[in-house]
Design a protein around this nucleic acid. Structure first.
Length: 656
RNA sequence: GCGGCCGUGGUCUAAUUGGUAGGACUAGGGCCUUCCAAGCCCUCGGCCCGGGUUCAAAUCCCGGCGGCCGCACCA
């Protein structure tokens, strides 16, 4: 969807650099793709967005904000799946040196083979001489088509192997031919067609062996039977401490820092579900070929929230407040539509209220930040596009004049994926407790081994036997006969005094469960680009950055009309007052007044106050509105109380 | 990662067939100036990096880095 950058977009890029918003990093040394610097204005803009985000998630939602390290030891990503699944497997063609993703290549190859086999069988069926052959081919065809999707095909037929090979035109002398692993079992042949022919042996840190007869799609060069293909993991690797013993990685998302702290955060939130935790920070992905400025970076900023919810209850307590919100949706398997969130959840387009709620939240934040509502939509991931952890996922996408629709927020129902993996990897509980409304009593029958007897009798096997006993169903314990167990292929007899059957009443107050996680994840850099592009209003006589006032890096310009007659001094006094109220000002007495207004318009400063000779007489100044260029006169003393509401977005210039 | 095009002050751009860089805008200083990029004077600032060919390279050749476009990729 990339176009040649328009004149407008190029001018925006130039302005962003000239005025100190952003520029490619390390230009001094030739630049490094995928890294950007935020200058004074860009950083200020980013802070304003972060503060807006915090206002929604930390203040209004009440989620605790944390800050965790950007480097994590290997087990974290072993658990999260990033080490195994967060990579692309690349095959390099020795002919044209094109790198292709191995899994994509195999997929294409299976498709091609499917068609070829289909055709072969079609013609061969017509030529088949005996009914048996025809029957065999029909079976073969059905099974092949049925199972080809899985990358393997099993053919059951009464015809012998040679007939099949011949009829399918498969050379027998070639060990790597699509039919391998032929086994004769009773009256049918089990032909395992594809997995041996095109086998990816993924041993992770070793090379991957690709066997088979595949030609490069780019140049037609045959790939060698055992082309080595390397997994390209998108994480930056490093070493923690000296030596190679302790590998670490720069985090590819801030989320893991929240997951690993789930028990801590659960206690902080006084063991109540649902609760949320958030983090704003840097994340790293070693992209193969980053381009498109802020859109694809190797080091970027995320603002992520993890909301831990009860899997049995994904309603949202404040859903009523947002249910009539209209949102433009692009569902995975339906036409785009605009509907209320209530309808979308009722119709099952959005899976649950929790996801819907954060879609609404996201819409609020992004539009408040200055993304145009008509150029914002929510698109559902196709099932094959979904990350390895997600069960439902919606992307907020903004429409860029330059890059087309670009995702900038992902709202995913990650289920219990992450917590389960970390629980397993760490052997620590990630569970929460669900208290019943009424404690429940239940009769429990269980077997209690008597170690005092088992120990001396069975010595070192006692522990294993005790485990086995506990796992027996008490119902199956014979009453009269001795109890027997199989241990190490031996049958042993357990005397009745070595265990006790306990039948008791237990009171249960609740149960533990793994919470599910709803994750709204914001890509800050992309959002900032969206804000800038949507706010950019170039024209022949003046360029204007129409930022919402609360996003503006510089809030108020302070301009003495002329730099004499004591006007600069008066202006600086006023500026000091405004600064004391926390207003970010910029004093400028250089050049004509028009030039100075233009400079402020270009960086999105919403208000400018001008100190003129009348100020010296009656202590009033003019306040100028960036968007309309209108001016109104205001007493100096009223400035802080009048300007602050405008800058916070609670009032407009017309309220002055 | 592949292919095509490209790389001159902060930005845009000029420099016959090789002869060591000129302009505009911006910015800084000054003059002038009573409200929207006015004018005048002065100033700062450049050949992406490294190698090669040559008496001499912004220019030709090779490599690297970066950019744009296409392909590919994008949990």
């Amino acid at each position: 969807m990339s176009n040649t950058p328009s004149q407008e977009a190029q001018e925006l890029t130039a302005m962003l650099k000239r005025r100190g918003f952003i520029q490619p990093a390390y230009e001094l040394y030739g630049g490094t793709a995928g890294f950007y610097d935020y200058g004074p204005l860009g950083q200020a803009l980013k802070r304003r967005f972060e503060d807006l985000w915090r206002e929604h998630y930390v203040i209004q939602e009440g989620f605790g904000e944390v800050s965790t390290p950007t480097i994590a030891p290997e087990p974290v990503f072993q658990a999260s799946g990033h080490l195994d699944q967060f990579d692309d497997v690349l095959v390099e063609c020795p002919g044209c040196r094109t790198g292709t993703r191995a899994d994509h290549m195999l997929e294409d190859e299976f498709q091609r083979l499917a068609h070829e086999l289909e055709n072969n069988i079609q013609t061969l069926t017509e030529d088949a001489e005996t009914d048996e052959d025809v029957q065999a081919l029909i079976w073969a065809r059905e099974r092949i088509m049925q199972t080809l999707d899985e990358g393997r095909a099993t053919v059951e037929t009464e015809a012998d192997e040679d007939t099949i090979r011949e009829l399918l035109a498969i050379p027998t002398q070639n060990q790597q031919a699509p039919i391998t692993g032929v086994e004769e079992t009773h009256s049918h042949l089990d032909l395992t067609l594809l997995p041996c022919a095109y086998q990816i042996t993924d041993t992770r840190h070793d090379d991957i062996i690709l066997a088979g007869e595949i030609t490069c799609q780019q140049c037609g060069h045959g790939l060698p039977r055992e082309a080595t293909v390397a997994p390209f993991n998108l994480m930056f690797a490093t070493r923690i401490g000296p030596g190679d013993s302790d590998p670490g990685y720069l985090r590819p998302e801030t989320a893991q820092g929240l997951f690993v702290n789930m028990p801590w955060l659960y206690r902080y939130h006084r063991e109540k579900i649902p609760f949320g935790a958030v983090q704003i920070g840097r994340a790293y992905r070693n992209e193969i070929s980053p381009r498109q400025g802020l859109i694809r970076l190797r080091e970027f900023w995320q603002a992520e929230a993890e909301v831990f919810v009860d899997p049995n209850d994904k309603t949202h307590p404040r859903f009523d407040a947002i249910k009539t919100t209209n949102v433009p949706l692009v569902p995975a398997d339906n036409d785009p539509l605009e509907t209320t969130l209530e309808t979308a959840v009722e119709k099952g387009i959005i899976k649950n209220q929790q996801v819907a709620y954060y879609i609404a939240r996201t819409q609020q934040i992004l539009t408040q930040a200055g993304i145009h509502p008509d150029r914002l939509r929510f698109r559902q991931h196709e099932s094959d596009e979904m990350a390895h952890y997600a069960s439902d996922c919606w992307d907020a996408e903004f429409q860029s004049q330059r890059y087309g629709w670009v995702e900038c927020v992902g709202i995913a129902d990650r289920g219990c994926y992450d917590l389960e993996k970390h629980q397993k990897e760490s052997n620590d509980s990630m569970e929460a407790f669900r208290r019943y409304d009424e404690p429940q009593t239940q009769r429990v029958t269980r077997i209690e081994p008597d170690m005092g007897t088992l120990g001396p009798t069975f010595k070192k096997d006692a522990g294993t036997i005790a485990e086995k006993l506990k796992n027996l169903d008490p119902e199956t314990i014979p009453n009269d006969e001795p109890l027997t167990l199989t241990l190490n292929n031996e049958t042993i007899e357990i005397p009745p005094d070595a265990y006790e059957i306990i039948d008791e009443e237990q009171t249960v107050h609740g149960e533990t469960f793994l919470p599910h996680v709803i994750e709204p994840s914001y890509g800050i850099d992309r959002i900032l680009y969206a804000i800038l592009e949507h706010a950019w209003k170039p024209s022949e006589d003046r360029n204007r950055l129409q930022l919402p006032p609360r996003m503006a890096p510089i809030q108020v310009g302070i301009l003495p009309l002329v730099s004499k007659d004591g006007l600069p001094k008066k202006a600086q006094t006023i500026e000091t007052t405004l600064k004391q109220h926390g207003i970010h000002t910029r004093y400028d007495d250089g050049g004509s007044i028009g030039r100075r207004y233009a400079r402020l318009d270009e960086i999105g400063t919403p208000l400018a106050i001008t100190i003129d000779h009348q100020t010296l007489e009656d202590d009033t100044v003019t306040v100028r509105d960036r968007d309309t260029q209108n001016q109104t006169r205001t007493p100096t003393n009223d400035l802080p109380t009048k300007l602050l509401p405008i800058l916070n977005g609670q009032a407009t210039f017309n309220d002055l």
